[in-house]
């Protein structure tokens, strides 16, 4: 069935445009490259946010991750302002910066992140961990560094990094 569909589709495109430009594709290599790149995204995000997005575990670092219990069925939770009490002078550029976390599939408890002075950092114990039963609600990151500047920096640095 699949091939007959393919044949019908094929009849809607012109032969001249259907072409393989650069020879045979190494499908195994393609798969390896794909996995390698996806892995590097996770690693970058892990470093940047000191959060293990694959296992949903906070790590030591600049950010302190705090679990916020979501109110079930209240999308307003998504519009909540970030927790600012620990950093009254810090601005949270939430509106102009939206970045998708690499683990887009995760549906965890709403977590909000805020930067704390390192000296005040409380232990990141069990309270920061997300239990499986609480993974129903949407997670949102509310504070990130200047997105566009960091993006430009990434673009300029990464070619050298990769060599």
């Amino acid at each position: 069935m699949g091939s007959s569909r393919n044949n019908i589709l094929r009849s809607t495109v012109s032969e001249k445009v259907c072409r393989n430009l650069f020879g045979a594709v190494d499908h195994e290599q393609l798969k390896r490259d794909c996995q390698e790149l996806l892995k590097s995204f996770h690693e970058e995000a892990k470093q940047k946010w000191n959060f293990d997005f694959v296992n949903e575990v906070p790590l030591e670092g600049t950010y302190k991750w705090e679990r916020v219990v979501a109110q079930v069925g209240v999308p307003a939770a998504c519009h909540q302002r970030p927790l600012l009490r620990a950093l009254p002078n810090q601005t949270c550029p939430e509106e102009n910066e939206r970045e998708n976390s690499p683990s887009s599939s995760a549906s965890a408890a709403v977590e909000q992140v805020c930067r704390l002075p390192l000296s005040e950092e409380p232990p990141q114990g069990s309270s920061a961990r997300v239990s499986k039963s609480q993974r129903k609600a949407k997670r949102k990151q509310t504070v990130i560094t200047d997105f566009y500047h960091s993006k430009r920096r990434n673009i300029q640095c990464s070619p050298k990094d990769r060599k």
Binding site: V13, N20, A24, H27, P102
Partner: peptide, 21 residues
């Protein structure tokens, strides 16, 4: 089809995520 079937739909979808990332 336009690549003369040199790639598979599945590969296209996987790489979509890579490019997006």
């Amino acid at each position: 089809i336009y690549t003369d079937n040199s790639i598979k739909s599945q590969e296209l979808l996987e790489w979509e995520l890579v490019v997006l990332g």
